[in-house]
Structure formats: structure tokens, C-alpha cells
Amino acid sequence: MHSEELELAKIGYQSYGQSTDFKNYQGLPMPAWDDLPEHIQVAWMAAVTAIAKYVLHKQSESLARIIVDDIVSEI
């Protein structure tokens, strides 16, 4: 497991818990991260990885537009 993905997954899980009074979708208490089955931890890591890739892609597009705009304005 990549440590960055793991940390982001834990942050996401904690944030989810804070927003639901630490109850799961069934209204039951959420287990601690370390008590989650591995496949659930992997699912959280997949979710944050997808979000991170999306954000980085959007930032790259924005940066590319800024660079192109700067080049065009200098012509």
C-alpha cells in the first residue's frame, strides 16, 4: 500500500465518520479504521486515488491554460 493513499483514505474515512456521527449507512457505529476488513480499506484507498487523480488532472488543465494564455498574450 502506498502511504499517501493510506493517509488520504484514513482522512476520508474520518471525515465521513464526522459527518455521520460515526454511524455507517445502516445507522450502526462505524468501526475504527484498523478494525475495517482489508477489502474495505482498499475500497477507501481506491476512492481517494480516483479523487486525487481527478483533482490533479483538473489542476494540470488549468495550469496548461494559464501557460498557453501567457504565451499567446506575449505574441
Rank of each mutant, 00 (worst) to 15 (best):
M1Y: 12
M1Q: 07
S3A: 08
S3R: 09
E4P: 04
E4D: 15
E5A: 12
E5M: 09
E5I: 04
L6R: 11
E7R: 10
E7I: 11
E7P: 00
L8C: 10
G12Q: 10
G12M: 09
Y13K: 00
S15Y: 06
S15M: 13
Y16K: 03
Y16P: 04
G17W: 00
G17E: 01
Q18F: 04
Q18M: 10
S19H: 05
T20Y: 00
T20L: 00
D21E: 11
D21A: 09
F22G: 03
F22A: 03
K23D: 08
Y25W: 09
G27F: 02
G27P: 04
G27S: 01
P29R: 00
P29A: 00
P31Q: 05
W33S: 04
W33M: 02
D34V: 05
P37K: 01
E38L: 13
H39K: 08
Q41T: 07
V42Y: 11
M45Q: 12
A46M: 13
A47R: 08
A47W: 08
A47Q: 12
V48T: 14
T49A: 11
A50W: 02
A50S: 13
I51Q: 12
A52M: 06
A52K: 09
Y54V: 05
L56D: 13
L56I: 06
H57V: 02
K58L: 11
Q59E: 14
S60G: 12
S60T: 07
E61L: 14
S62Y: 01
S62A: 13
S62R: 03
A64V: 08
A64M: 13
R65Q: 10
I66L: 14
I66Q: 11
I67F: 02
I67W: 00
D70G: 05
D70Y: 06
D70R: 06
I71W: 04
V72M: 10
V72D: 14
E74L: 12
E74R: 11
I75V: 12
